[in-house]
Every structure is written in C-alpha cells, then in structure tokens.
Design a protein around this nucleic acid. Sequence first.
DNA 1: AAAGCCATTCAAAGCGATTTCAAATTTTGA
DNA 2: TCAAAATTTGAAATCGCTTTGAATGGCTTT
Lengths: 345, 345
Amino acid sequence: MGRNAAMRLKDLAEHLGLSQTTVSRALNGYPEVNEATRRRVAEAANLLGYRPNASALRLATGRAGAVGLVLRGADELGPHMSEFLSGVGSYMASQEIDMLVSTVASHQEELAAYRRLAASQKVDAVILHSPTISDERAELLMDLKIPFVLHGRTNIGHPVAWLDIDNTSALERATSHLLDLGHRRIALLNGVKGRTFAQHREIGYRAALTARGLPVDPALVGNSAFTDEIAFRMAQAMLEQRPRPTAFLAGSMMTALGVFRAIRQAGLQLGSDVSMIAHDDVFPYLNADNMYPTMSTTRSSIRQAGTRIAELIMQILAGKPLAEVHELWPVELVLRESSGPAPKS
Amino acid sequence: MGRNAAMRLKDLAEHLGLSQTTVSRALNGYPEVNEATRRRVAEAANLLGYRPNASALRLATGRAGAVGLVLRGADELGPHMSEFLSGVGSYMASQEIDMLVSTVASHQEELAAYRRLAASQKVDAVILHSPTISDERAELLMDLKIPFVLHGRTNIGHPVAWLDIDNTSALERATSHLLDLGHRRIALLNGVKGRTFAQHREIGYRAALTARGLPVDPALVGNSAFTDEIAFRMAQAMLEQRPRPTAFLAGSMMTALGVFRAIRQAGLQLGSDVSMIAHDDVFPYLNADNMYPTMSTTRSSIRQAGTRIAELIMQILAGKPLAEVHELWPVELVLRESSGPAPKS
DNA sequence: AAAGCCATTCAAAGCGATTTCAAATTTTGA
DNA sequence: TCAAAATTTGAAATCGCTTTGAATGGCTTT
C-alpha cells in the first residue's frame, strides 16, 4: 500500500545500533573501523539488501557514476552501435557505472544534448562516436570540460583521448591484395563523406593505387551510410559501367550484402566474375565465414573496441593525461572465397 | 583550472537578488510568483545556461527521471534491440527522461541488476523485453514495486502493462497463404523456445495447418536465436529432407538471409522452387522491398513499438491502472516475390 | 596515578535542489 | 482609515548520503 520505501543508511544504522558515519565507513572500506564491526555491518547490509540511494550518493560525492552516449537518430543506432554499446556495457557493468543513452535527431540537438548533460551534471564522461575530421562536438565537450574518449580520430586544437582502428592500412592492404590478383577497376563503397574513418579509408585506397601508378576513378568511389539498400543501388550503377569494376571494397557487412545482391542480379558470380573484400565489425549474427561464398574481410571487433574505450574512460577519470590515451588498433585481413583473381577480359 | 563548477540555484538566486525559493518556483511554473519576476528569472536562467543539478533534483523530488533497460549480453543487444531502443529514445528525449541501459551476461545477473536498480532507486520504471511464458523477471519487478511495461506478454498472477504484436494471427495468415498456394511442407524457423512470442507464432502456424487437417511435422520446426548463421544451418538441414520443404517461415530478416543462402546453395530458386515469408521488424538498413527477389513479409515496426511503450510508461507513471494498459498490434502481411505457388512434384 | 596515544565511534555540516511555513507587502472591503 | 485578505517573497527543513572534526575509552608509558 505504502510507497516504495527502500532501506536507508539511517535505517540500517539504527538497526545495528551504530551511527550512520560508522556504517558508511564500514561499507566504503575506510581503514578506521573495527574489523568485527565491519563484518557485522557488511552482513546486515547484505542481508537487508541495502544499497545507497544513487542520487544522494552522487550529490554527496559529486560523481555521477554514469557515462553518456548521445546517438544521432536512425543512422547511428544501427547494428554497429548496438555491438559497440554492448562492448561498453560489459565493462561498465563491472565498474557499477551506468550508461546514459540519449537519442537525438540532428546535429544541433546533439550539441544541445551535451550542454544539458554538462549543466545538469548527469554524467562523468561521454563517449564520442564517428567523428568528423574537425569535430565540433569534440570542441564543445572541451569547452564544457566534460571528459570524453573518442571512438575514431579528429583534429582539434587540444589533445584528445581516442581509440581508433587503422583504417588506412586496412584499405591499403585490401586494395593492394586485389591489385596483386590482377584487378584494375576496384570500386570503393565508403562511409559518409566527412567522417574521419571514411577519409582514412580513402587515403589507404588511393595510396595503394598510386603506388602502382594507377589513377583513381571518381566514378568508382561512393560515399553513403552503410545500409544494404543504398549499397545495392550504388553497386548496381557501378556494374553498368564499361569496363565494369571487377572488385568491390565494401565498407561494412551490410554494404556487402547489398553489393552481393547487385552482383547476383547482374548475373555475375562473386569470387570469380567480381571480387569483394568487406569490412567486418564482427557481428555475432552475421558471420563472414558462413556466407556463401565466404567473404574476405578486413576485420576488427567493434565490440572489443567498446570494451576498451570503457576502460580508457576509467583511466582518464582516474587522472591519466589525455595525451597518453591513444590507441590505434591494427586490422586483420582475412582472405576467403569472395576475393579471387581478376577475370581475363 | 578549477573544477567543473556548473552554476547552482544559489548562484542564480544571488545573481538576481532573489531567494532560492522564488527562483525555484519561477522556473518550475508555480503560480504564486509575480509574472515580471518569472520572466526575469527565466531570462537569466536561459542566458546563464542554468539547469538544476540532476542528483539534487532527484534527491529532493524522489523521482529518478530515468527508465531502465537491462539487456542480456549478445543475444539481446542485436539489431532488434537497437531499433527498439531508438524508438524508446525518441520519445524519452522529448520528455527529458533518461534511458539507463545496462548489459548483463546471465539470467541471474539480470535479476541482480533489477534488485540493484530498485535498491539504489536509479529508475522510475523499466522496460521488459522478450518475456518468457511465465516471466520470473516480471514477478521480481512486481515484488520490488518497480513499475514496468512489457514488450510482449507473460502470464503471472498480477495484472501487467504490456504492448505486443499479434504474432499468432500473423503466422496463421502467413501459413494459410502458403497453404493456399499449394505448399504442404512448410518449415517454421521460430525464435528461442520458451519466449512467449515464439509460442504465439507456433500456435498460429499450427492453427493454420490443423484447420486443413494437416499434421505438424516436428522436423520442420526449429527454435533458435535470430542469426543468419544458425538459420543457414537449420534451413540447410531441412532442405536435405525428402520430400523437402517447399516453403519457409523465417522469424526475422536475419533468419531470412540465412535461409536464402541455404536455398541458393542447394541450387534452388527462391520464389519458385522454394517460397519464404519472413517476419520484418522494419530495419532502415535492410529493406524487404529491395531484396532480390523481393521478400514477402509479416511486418511490424519494432521502432514504433518502442516509441509507444515509452508513452505507456509515462501513462502508468501518471497513475493509469495497469489493467488498462494493454495494446495488441495487428501485423501486416505484405506479399512480394519470395512467396510463389508450390512447385509441381 | 597522570599523561599521552591509539583505535573506534559519533554529531553535525555539507552536497543542491524542493517544499513547508511564516513574513512582508500590496490590495481590497467596510 | 484601518482591518482583512490576497499576493509575493524568503528562511529553514528536508531528501539520503559522505566527510570533517571532536569525543570516547582503553592501553601504554613515565
């Protein structure tokens, strides 16, 4: 009948015949409390299911015990993000840190959301995702003095903590491999223009081509979100060119599915008529090894990146200098059936 | 150099030469404050970017201003959940309610997570997902007196607020349609056993078969998580049976991709040799209309469900009786190319 | 036996908001 | 014109925790 009355520190203290001070200290591991008392307190707390009221604790300590993730609408909360989230979450749970997830519709809303987070002190830090080359959100967060770790890289005046995968090298190697196989017209289905990772990938792609004195054909480079539908359309259009591309570099597994469909629809065979290497963020429900034909990939677990970023967040909250928090992860190139020698023309 | 010192109510009050009381009232729309003062306060607050400290506000009001979502590891934080989340988020953002997302690895951990949420009063309500037929988590939440809305249905002693889609009718119609087309061996790739939605789907499937006096072949019913790999394996095994199934009911679009691969690998044509109707939760990056061949589906937007559930949460927090918060959404049957007449044998 | 030390414990002052109750001012009514 | 009522403001209590500074009591030490 009554309200939801959770047990308070005061109740627990009274129950034990101790002061709140002592009980609080006992539970928080302060040294100046008698071992016997500490055990008694811990036992009672455990038995009665006492947990400090989160708001009170936060107010008293000034720590929010949460990290923020602001996601831009439909484009960002896709399968990539959910894998990433799940990686972040698995570590945060072990640290008793909450994840505060908000969704916004536009860039402006996103900036506003960060201002709100800062002003209302809801989070101790945030994770910034898919940065642009010179990311305004990163600048804002610096101004707001709210610590953050970047998933990706950006170029702003200040040092910034980040973790990224080596997209440039991944694409350089993938492209070189296709060139080794004799391919000369290699299409790149890249991410949205303006994102750092897309730029890095293009750099790697170009580097491999120019290293052999080959030109870059802009008609073979597409930029878009990673959905199978858009990829299907782009690949379809590219396959109508003559000479047609003999290989595709797909930005994600979703993209790869679209390209695959376009190839099949054009009556071509993946792995012989046309080759493909896709970037694989390692989704548990979409396995490159189990495709038909199996898919060659540049692989890096986005979930692991999430977990590691969570760890980095804790490090910078513990005071580690931002300039020391940089990680560039290598990307594995896994060759399977979808990448074969270029067809003789 | 100093700490992150956000503006406090006290600062704002001093700045205005008013008491905290008046400023607080002005900002919260209490009637007993002079209109002129209210404007002055609102203006200053806006200008200085004042927002109440969330922890203090929560402590004072007893409201957490957040809803919780506990997700079980890899299986639950898939593409379905991220769409759903994004739907919930879009409404919650408009209400200034946070989403507290935590991930857990096991059922036990999940129960523990709810206990923690309750004891530490971090959320005003939670959203419960993918319930089992008699869901222990729902029982626990009732005990803990933490309000919740169920996405799906369950059978426990108490009335429960829920929103679900009409899985039974969806599968009955899909199955009937395939029967009308002459199919007699129809495989069902269903969700994990024990989940209510999977049971409902099986009921619909069986109803359609028995309505025509046809038996249910257990070898044609599979239960599993919705990943393309598992679906591929199951479909592959089923296609080896003689007589082989001529139609598949796929539980999700991921499942459909796996089945599709199995069909192709068996040298068969989707839409002529084998038919398929898949359940489509409407992912923006995986469109049934853009598949090749286009995919017949039972369709219901999981994102919209999320948004609506967020609204329902607000309603029950506003005091609406649980027994009045039930919604059963119809499911659209969209016929496209993947479902054709049964092949003549 | 007095003084000094430890080891423990506690009372009370924050943290930053809301809200109760009282005070000050203005307006109204007779 | 003066009391009463209405309007507007403010001081202080409260929410549940942490943490500072002081108090208690038992043991050494001289």
